[in-house]
């Protein structure tokens, strides 16, 4: 089933971050293997950070993916709003993955600044996809101010710890009418599948693929994990039981 996000329709529910890839060649192969149609990029000084020496935008063109600029590294609403506006000017897109970091060790978002920036950018016509914590109340507030989705962290960025609080992710899914995208903390395919089984509409990940020993194999795994989790979520899983329930019938058992 297609995935509606910000008024656009996607086939893939996997959003891939480009950070952490060893080089553009591996990145391109991973993007293609993942089947993603939406890929994040950062805005950095020309010729400094990886990818900023040229070739990244051309690569994304070749892959036919839509670009999602982020505001990574911003610590205040003022700064994040400026970066979003610079990204809009640079990339001709009003989509933004809004990040406002509140803590250096965990890179968890600053909810107060995040909400402020989201409000300002929505008013300025942006399609705002905020990276948020797994707080159901903050997620609802972000949806209420007009964000096109909410993107709760499963666990800290780059940690690979998976979905730390599945209960909250479920509560977020129940509490908002916009897509919920699990963003950050995914370590391996089962984490992505779990996020989808919890009811998430999509998964955004970077490090799990780009820093894997074999990024292309992991990108393929993530593609199937997101699809499998989505299918399972809609398939009506069996109830958990304390004791066994035989699947083979007792009727007709031979007496020997």
């Amino acid at each position: 089933m297609p995935f509606e996000l910000g008024g656009e329709t996607f086939t893939s529910r996997l959003i891939l971050g480009t950070g952490g890839a060893a080089n553009l060649h591996v990145l391109e192969q991973a993007i293609r293997a993942s089947g993603t149609e939406l890929v994040t990029v950062a805005l950095r000084r020309v010729g400094t950070a990886p990818g900023s020496t040229g070739g990244l935008l051309e690569l994304l063109d070749r892959c036919g993916v839509r670009l999602l600029p982020n505001t990574a590294g911003c610590h205040t609403a003022t700064e994040a709003v400026k970066v979003a506006r610079l990204a809009r000017d640079a990339f001709d897109t009003d989509w933004v993955k809004l990040e406002v970091i509140g803590d250096e060790r965990t890179l968890l978002p600053d909810g107060v600044e995040l909400l402020r920036a989201a409000e300002e950018l929505v008013a300025d016509g942006f399609t705002v996809l905020p990276y948020t914590s797994d707080d159901p109340v903050l997620a609802r507030r972000l949806a209420d101010v007009g964000c096109a989705a909410v993107m709760p962290a499963g666990s800290p960025i780059g940690s690979g710890l998976g979905v730390g609080n599945p209960h909250h992710i479920r509560l977020i899914r129940q509490g908002v009418d916009v897509p919920v995208i699990l963003d950050a903390g995914i370590g391996t395919a089962s984490d992505a599948a779990l996020a989808m089984e919890l009811g998430c509409d999509g998964v955004l990940l970077a490090s799990a693929v780009t820093r894997a020993a074999d990024p292309v194999a992991m990108a393929t795994a993530m593609r199937y994990a997101v699809e499998a989790g989505r299918l399972a979520a809609g398939a009506g899983r069996i109830e958990r039981r304390f004791h066994a329930l035989a699947s083979t019938p007792d009727e007709g058992r031979p007496e020997l």
Binding site: V41, L43, V46, S52, L56, N70, A184, L204
Partner: peptide, 10 residues
């Protein structure tokens, strides 16, 4: 002056 462009990022 800041002159900025696309870089790899999550």
């Amino acid at each position: 002056v800041e002159v900025l462009t696309a870089a790899q990022g999550g």
